[in-house]
Amino acid sequence: MLRFRTDLPLDRDQTARFLPWIIGFMVYLAIIAATIALLVHHATQRWQRDLSGQLTIELPVLENEDADSRRQRVDAAVEEIADTNGIIGTRLLDEAEMRRLLQPWLGDQVDQLGIPLPDLVAVSLAPDISPNLSELAERLQAVSPGAVIEDHVAFNAGAIGFLRTIEVVAISLLVLVLAATAGVVAFTARAGLSIHRRIVEVVHLVGAHDSYVARQFQAQAFRYGFYGAFIGSLLATATLLMAAIFATRGAAPMTAVVRTFEPWMIWPLVLIPLAAILIAMVTVRIAVLTALRRMAY
C-alpha cells in the first residue's frame, strides 16, 4: 500500500524504520493532551460563567430568637444587602432549596440533625460594578450578627487556578510533542540524506532540482505520517473511551469535568493526525532543502 518507485531507497534505512511508531506515539500523546486541554478549558469557562455574578450570604440563627424577630432580622439584612451599590438582586432561599444544597455535605438526615439551619440569601451582582463587600459585611454585623459573605469566585479561585494549570501543562505538552515530532522527522531526513549521499549526487548531476529530491522524502514522510497518524488515533480513541467510562464512575471532581464533554471535543482526534502528517511533510521539505543548499554544488 502507498508504495512508489523512488530513486532513493529510503524505506530500507534503519533510522526510518521506527518512524511510523514514533509518529504514532507522538500523535497519541498530542491527541490526549489536546483533548484534556479542551475539556478543562471548557469546564473552567462554564464553571466561571455559572459562578460569577453570584454570591451567597449566610445569616446564622441567633440564640433564643423567636420566629417573628428572626423574620424581622432577616428582612432588615436583605434590605441592607439590596441597598448596596453593585448588587442588583437578592433572593431568600426557601427550605426545600436549602435542603437540596446541604444534602451533599450533611447527608439524607439533614432534618434529624436538630441543628438550626441558617438563612441563605442568593445575591446577583451587577456585571460591571463590584460591590464593596467589606463595607457590606460591617453593615450586616449590625443588623444580623455573625453574617458570612461567601464569595463563590474567591472560594473557587483555587480550583479554577488548578484547572488552568492543567490546561497550560496540557497545551505545553501538545506543543512539545508536535515540535518533537518535527525534530525526529527532520533528523531522520538528514540521516537519510547522508546515507544516500551518492545517489543524491547522481540525481543532481543528471539534472534534478533540489525539490525533486525533497519530493521523495516528502512522499516517505507522507506515508510514515499516515501510518503514524492511524496508529496514534486508534490508540487515542481507545484511551479516551476508557477514560470516559472510568471517569463517569469515578471520583467527584473528575466526573464533574468529564460531564462537561461535548461532541465537538473530538476535533483533536480528527485534526491532530492531519496536522501530524502535514508537519512531517513540511518539516522534511525544509530540512532536506536547507541541507541540500549547504552542499557545495
Partner: peptide, 24 residues
C-alpha cells in the same frame, strides 16, 4: 543553484565509476 539543473540537463556524463543506482 537553481540554474544548475537546466545546465546539467544539456550535459551527458559517463562517470569513470559509472555511478549507477544500485537498487534500480
Amino acid at each position: 543553484r537553481s540554474d544548475y539543473p537546466a545546465m546539467r540537463r544539456r550535459i551527458g556524463v559517463v562517470f569513470q565509476d559509472f555511478r549507477l543506482i544500485d537498487h534500480l
